[in-house]
Design a protein around this nucleic acid. Structure first.
Length: 103
DNA sequence: TGCTTGACATAAT
DNA sequence: CATTATGCCAAGC
């Protein structure tokens, strides 16, 4: 279809225990300014669990809320289940967990 | 075809 | 460090 499918493909490349940022995905797809579109694409998934959307967070290493707090808590829960650790500021160690896309 | 919206990013306050 | 303002690009209407 377009941009969104590329986002899904990249997110699916992120292994468990690793996380990625909207900016990185956008950069991999063309420009770092595509970050919003990345989020937009993931929003289209809604409750589709075929894509590990919870492994995608913002550049600050924090979970992006969509409006429903439950969504963010669920995301954090899923990440912790993958082995991702949050610090006191509810942030993940991006320097260690940040996934680097190959192509 | 053209305007509005949006799970962000970055810089400024 | 949090909050606000602006930019950017694609999708929806």
């Amino acid at each position: 279809m377009g941009f969104r499918d590329d986002v899904y493909a990249l997110v699916q490349q992120v292994p468990a225990g690793r996380v990625s940022t909207y900016g990185d995905i956008g950069t991999c797809l063309g420009s770092p300014r595509l970050a919003r579109q990345v989020g937009f694409a993931l929003a289209g998934l809604r409750d589709d669990d075929s894509v590990p959307w919870h492994r995608v967070i913002n550049a600050q290493g924090r979970i992006s809320f969509r409006g429903d707090d439950i969504r963010g808590i669920l995301q954090r829960n899923l990440l912790e289940a993958d082995g991702v650790v949050f610090d006191d500021a509810d942030r993940v160690a991006l320097a260690e967990l940040r996934w680097r896309f190959e192509s």
